[in-house]
Each structure stands twice: as C-alpha cells, then as structure tokens.
Design a protein around this nucleic acid. Sequence first.
DNA 1: TGGTTGACTAAGT
DNA 2: CACTTAGCCAACC
Length: 109
Amino acid sequence: MEKESNSFFDKVYEVANQIPYGKVTSYGAIAKYLGAVRSARIVGYAMNCSHNKHIPAHRVVNRKGLLTGKHHFAGTNLMQQLLENEGIEIVDNQIQNFETVFWDPSNEL
DNA sequence: TGGTTGACTAAGT
DNA sequence: CACTTAGCCAACC
C-alpha cells in the first residue's frame, strides 16, 4: 500500500484525481503544482498511461482549453461527450468559458 | 547507456 | 492574427 509515488506520473495522477466535477485544468497547471512548470509535456505523457489508472483525463486539456488529447480517447468525440456531460460547453473541440470552468490546483489546493 | 518521443508552453515570424 | 520554431524534461525503446 505504498502511496509514495516517486514517479512523476503518479504525482500527476493524484492531482488529476482531485479535479472537481464539472471543472477542468491544464497540463501546465498540474505541472506547476508539482513544481515543474516546464514539465507540462510530461504531464500529458503521464495521461497517456492514465487509461490503466482511474484518472479523469478528459478534465485535463491544454492551456488554450483545446481538447488536444481527444484523439487518444476511445471514441472520436468521447472526451467532448464526457465534458459536456459535466456541464461544460465545447465548440470545435474548444472549451467555452474556459476561465469559468478552469480549476487551478495551485490555487485550490 | 544513449537517443527519440510527446495529450505542452512561450516566443518569434 | 495564425502559423512556425525552439526549449523543456521525464518516460520509453
């Protein structure tokens, strides 16, 4: 039951799990919370393996609020469907009112 | 052990 | 204002 996650990935998973319902965040925000703003790419890389974990990766988008990683989901618009199911409006793969639904772990945690 | 990759971000053209 | 280039850093082969 070791929760000591030495890997950067596991740290990302913990933060992603703390994303509240109906909210989204960016890779850079998670990286910033982990103290590695420049490792935003690593966060996205970690999400690549999130399928094995129970991580709401659909709540994590890039800084522009664009669903860049939707291609990695099962369906074509599965990621968008999940977000819309949480009350988030998405048009052209871009989150509307991004600032409204944006959740910054560094600010909330 | 070393080199490539990538669900990013910021800056430049 | 939109596209291009460069820097970043950890995991993967």
